[in-house]
Amino acid sequence: MKICKNKQSMEQYFETCILEHGKSLFNYIYSLVRHKELAEDLYQEVLISAYLALPSFEERAKVKNWLFKIAVNKCRDYWRKEKSANRFWEEKVYLYAEDSNVIEQPEELILNKCSQEEMVVTLQDLPKMYREPLLLFYYHNQTLMEISNLTSLPISTVKTRMRRAKDRLRPKVKELVANG
């Protein structure tokens, strides 16, 4: 198909391309992101970008390949933004908490008051999967992200294990404080 430079013929050409390749384009985007609503949003962004860039389309390229390349780039942009947003929550939130005068949680106060030796003995009663993140966090001053990287676990799993470990420790630590 030959692209004419007048607006009406460009719109007709674009409409023909979308009718011909739209479904396969959407399926391709969906195969990349595996989320229907996200795929729909990205599909719309691809169509808008393609329409705006249509005057610069080089006829020697195949239009389907051109549309799919725009789709890949839109998906990469989305993943980059998503990764950046997640990085904020995984790293920067903890930095803000350390910088500000946040009131420590009661279990953190108790953990800090107990002697290190008694606490390590108490920690030995926990299963390794719960003990390891606590030791890394409180005794080796590792951040949650560092623990996640060291253990090859998602940060959400590290948080869950730390919470469960604290829940299991709470009654034992109360005994230590009462006896100490």
Rank of each mutant, 00 (worst) to 15 (best):
E146F: 07
E132V: 14
N149C: 07
E58A: 15
S148F: 08
P55Q: 09
E175C: 14
A178Q: 06
E45D: 13
W66K: 04
L38Q: 02
T160F: 15
I29E: 01
P154V: 11
R170M: 11
C17D: 01
E59V: 12
L123S: 05
T157N: 05
V158T: 02
K69Q: 11
P133F: 08
E91I: 10
Q142I: 03
K23R: 09
Q116P: 00
E98H: 11
P55C: 06
R161D: 01
Y96G: 00
S115K: 14
E98L: 15
C17M: 12
L109G: 01
K174V: 14
I103R: 08
A71I: 04
K113N: 07
I70R: 05
L25Q: 02
K172E: 11
W79M: 04
L169E: 05
T160Q: 09
N141C: 08
L47V: 09
I18W: 07
D125W: 15
R34G: 01
E91Y: 11
S115I: 15
K128V: 14
E82N: 04
P127C: 09
K92E: 06
E175W: 13
S84G: 04
L134H: 03
L32D: 00
L47F: 10
K172L: 14
T122M: 13
Y28H: 04
D99Y: 15
S100H: 09
A53L: 14
P127D: 03
V93P: 00
K5Q: 09
Q44C: 08
Q105I: 13
L136D: 02
S115V: 15
L111W: 04
S84M: 12
E146R: 10
V63D: 02
I18E: 01
K62I: 12
K2T: 08
N6L: 09
T160V: 05
T143V: 03
E91H: 08
D125T: 11
Y139K: 13
Y138S: 05
V173T: 09
Y13H: 04
Y13A: 03
L153D: 00
D99R: 13
K159W: 07
A50F: 08
N27W: 14
R87Q: 07
R170D: 03
R76V: 10
N101E: 10
V46H: 05
L67C: 04
S56E: 10
E58K: 15
K128R: 12
L42K: 03
E107G: 01
C4R: 10
R163N: 03
F26D: 00
S56G: 07
A71E: 03
G22Y: 06
N141K: 15
K69C: 06
R164C: 03
R131F: 12
K172R: 14
I29H: 02
K62Q: 11
S152C: 11
L111R: 03
P171N: 06
E118I: 15
F68M: 09
I147K: 04
K81F: 11
S100E: 06
I70F: 10
E59K: 11
P55W: 09
I18L: 10
S152Y: 12
L150A: 11
Y96T: 02
